[in-house]
């Protein structure tokens, strides 16, 4: 328990950033439903399960034009 407490100042910000990115990507992909490649289910899986990298991949190469 002590170990975890020691690293809490690191863990909390990381989790917050992960969640913010994931929610932003999810909201965007559920709203626009357009992708350069792949489909909605594939991108939901990528965004939810690949922490940090998933949302970044979605916004940089996966997102279609509005």
């Amino acid at each position: 328990m002590n170990e975890i407490m020691e690293y809490l100042p690191f863990i909390i910000p990381i989790i917050i950033v992960e969640l913010v990115l994931m929610v932003a990507a999810l909201v965007h992909l559920l709203k626009y439903k357009k992708f350069r490649f792949g489909n909605q289910i594939l991108w939901i899986v990528i965004v939810v399960f690949l922490q940090i990298i998933g949302p970044i991949l979605y916004f940089t190469i996966g997102r279609g034009d509005e």
């Binding site: 950033v17 913010v20 990115l21 932003a24 970044i56 940089t60």
Partner: peptide, 13 residues
């Protein structure tokens, strides 16, 4: 285009 969000969060990490 979420560039701001991506840059800031990645560099923060």
């Amino acid at each position: 285009t979420y560039r701001l969000l991506i840059c800031l969060s990645v560099f923060f990490l």
